[in-house]
């Protein structure tokens, strides 16, 4: 079998006020259905291996996690190598349910932005209040980065993880590098 290749081959930049790196490949499954249904929650938890997230939150541990995407959609994350098996298992759990599970791993790109200025880097690109008292680690936000849709959450105070469509990976990487260019600290937060 051929080896999976990420969109940017793990391109990274550490020149600016935050470190930006493409990571992955990461196993990602879009799961849609009634999020209150026990079978859907069980299917998500069995693969994501974290607690079921509250509205607009993401619980993550290593490569596993569950992100709340919309009132009827989750993103379930797992190691890339396990995604095929995970999908089969999920579909078994979901048998008879009105639900949809799709492997979107190869249709997404994933970035990590790290450093004390990551809130400023994101705030320059997204219409989101990134004040430390408002957007806290564990919260998940689907929004836009400049002109393209993206989603992100903070794993901790110094680490943000971003998911975007694979086709705009280079655009998003360039945006992040520009927002983090040397000397561009605003010192707002």
């Amino acid at each position: 079998m051929s080896d999976p290749v990420t969109a940017l081959n793990h391109l990274s930049s550490g020149d600016g006020i935050a470190h930006i790196a493409e990571i992955g490949p990461l196993g990602m499954i879009t799961l849609r259905g009634d999020l209150r249904a026990r079978a859907i929650q069980a299917a998500a938890i069995s693969i994501g291996r974290v607690e079921f997230p509250e509205m607009r939150h993401c619980n993550s541990a290593g490569e596993n996690g569950i992100a709340w995407m919309s009132p009827d959609e989750l993103l379930v994350m797992c190691p890339y190598a396990e995604v095929g098996e995970a999908l089969t298992k999920m579909n078994t759990t979901l048998a008879g349910q009105h639900a949809l599970a799709v492997n979107v791993s190869d249709a997404r790109a994933v970035f990590q932005v790290t450093g004390p200025y990551l809130r400023e880097v994101l705030a320059k690109l997204a219409p989101v209040d990134l004040d430390p008292g408002v957007f806290t680690p564990g919260m998940f936000r689907r929004t836009r980065l400049a002109q393209v849709p993206a989603a992100f959450w903070m794993r901790d105070d110094q680490t943000a993880q971003i998911i975007c469509f694979r086709s705009v990976a280079k655009y998003v990487f360039d945006l992040l590098c520009m927002a983090a260019q040397p000397g561009s600290e605003v010192n707002h937060f």
Binding site: R56, S70, P127, V128, R141, T143
Partner: peptide, 11 residues
């Protein structure tokens, strides 16, 4: 009203 996000119009 579906996800309670408040944002400016460009979102």
């Amino acid at each position: 009203p579906c996800c309670n996000v408040t944002a400016e119009e460009t979102e």
